[in-house]
Nucleic acid binder design. Structure first.
Lengths: 225, 225
DNA sequence: TATACTTTGTGAAAATAGTAACAAAGTAGG
DNA sequence: CCTACTTTGTTACTATTTTCACAAAGTATA
């Protein structure tokens, strides 16, 4: 990881943020069980993270617990939501209504987030006009118009790899601020715009390595999470 | 990253493997352009990796280049394929034929890999029997029988989070060796079985952080890839 | 063959991330 | 209010990962 984030003179890795998202999901599960106060040791019980790391991750943003007691579940949820920026609703555009795009439009996993996909685009005449999960697929030609209208700052790219860079260039002009990229290419973006790549083929390929070498390799800790 | 892989006394991180997969994809693109020999500096040109890191990643497995010349594209592709275990075909089972599962069955990104999804399972009567992209959705009850028959060692989990752990436990009994998990839960697995988590909701949530803090945070390198 | 240039492979150094240890702060019970 | 116990927040330490620097090996040209 080459990047480093500094906030109020404290520096930390982007992985800290991903773990915060993980903690948040777990805390919501804990809340459902009507637990109101909980220790760091209990919070991380089913996550592959140590209690020390959990506390350290939080410490970059402040002290949210009480010594000798633990953390108030409800309060901590609110705090992490605020850190992540989830308390604000960010409308999201999906670009590429192919198989994966359609699945994401219907995906239950996103529906639990405050932010939702609010519009979708494709260049295929056969797809334009279709309504999936209540969202109409728009012509990619109206991307600029709609993104400005709806003040969209986040985009999900599920377009084919050869089209992805062109789309990103257009999005950059439209002042988009964050991109979740599913296209299997590394995209060039200027400073100040953030991109997160989900590369399913890479994940699967690297998994094959571990399976292939199972017997030949030694691991200090065995779970390759 | 807590894990470490040791092979022939050399130790490296699992990230090395993911990068190898990335290099492989790029090399295939380079091959299409009829380039036969290339330097490390050129290979990484459109990847967010330094030439030194590329060479070091390869060095864990051997010396594949020629000093003063570079790397033979075709040969290097073959070598990386061999390292990753891609030259062997691994049949893959998909468990959970919901929206995401269906998308993965149709997903073009996987079709370029040697390994393919060869069977799919669901517990929903409405889905069982359907044929998606040539693959018939089987009853989850016949999981054990079919996995043994087809000698499947790799599984993709796209089941809902509350069912995922139960499925994993069953897969473990069936001697599965690698799992690609899309369910938003951390799954418990015994030593010797490998799991790779793709957590799309976490990715999106962490992206919101960067967008929210855009102006307030300082990054040593700006791309959050 | 000698010289200038290119590029790999790798050990050493620097940067980063994760772990451990512990003081500080709180609770509980007599 | 004193003692024993709990749990956080943070500093110091350890391990890992990445970058740097350069020798080794090759090419090309005169």
């Amino acid at each position: 990881m080459a990047d480093k984030i500094c906030i109020k003179k404290k520096c930390f890795s982007p992985d800290v943020i991903k773990r915060l998202s993980l903690y948040l999901r777990n805390l919501r599960k804990i809340r459902k069980e009507n637990i109101t106060v909980i220790s760091s040791a209990k919070i991380i019980e089913f996550l592959n993270v140590s209690a020390e790391q959990f506390r350290k991750d939080l410490s970059y943003f402040g002290g949210f617990g009480k010594r000798g007691v633990g953390y108030k579940v409800e309060k901590l949820i609110k705090e992490i939501e605020a850190i992540l920026g989830i308390n604000k609703k960010w409308p999201i555009a999906l670009i590429g209504a192919g198989k994966l795009g359609t699945a994401l439009l219907k995906f239950e996993g996103f529906s639990k987030l405050n932010s939702r996909i609010t519009c979708a685009f494709d260049s295929d005449k056969g797809k334009i006009g279709k309504i999936i999960n209540g969202i109409k697929i728009e012509d990619i030609k109206s991307l600029g118009k709609i993104i400005k209208e709806k003040e969209i700052k986040i985009a999900i790219i599920t377009a084919p790899p050869e089209k992805a860079q062109g789309i990103v260039d257009e999005l950059v002009c439209l002042k988009i601020r964050g991109i979740l990229n599913f296209a299997p290419v590394i995209l060039k973006i200027p400073d100040g715009i953030f991109i997160s790549n989900v590369d399913m083929a890479c994940e699967l390929e690297s998994l094959l390595f571990f399976v292939k070498h199972k017997d030949g390799l030694v691991m200090t800790e065995t779970k390759a999470q």
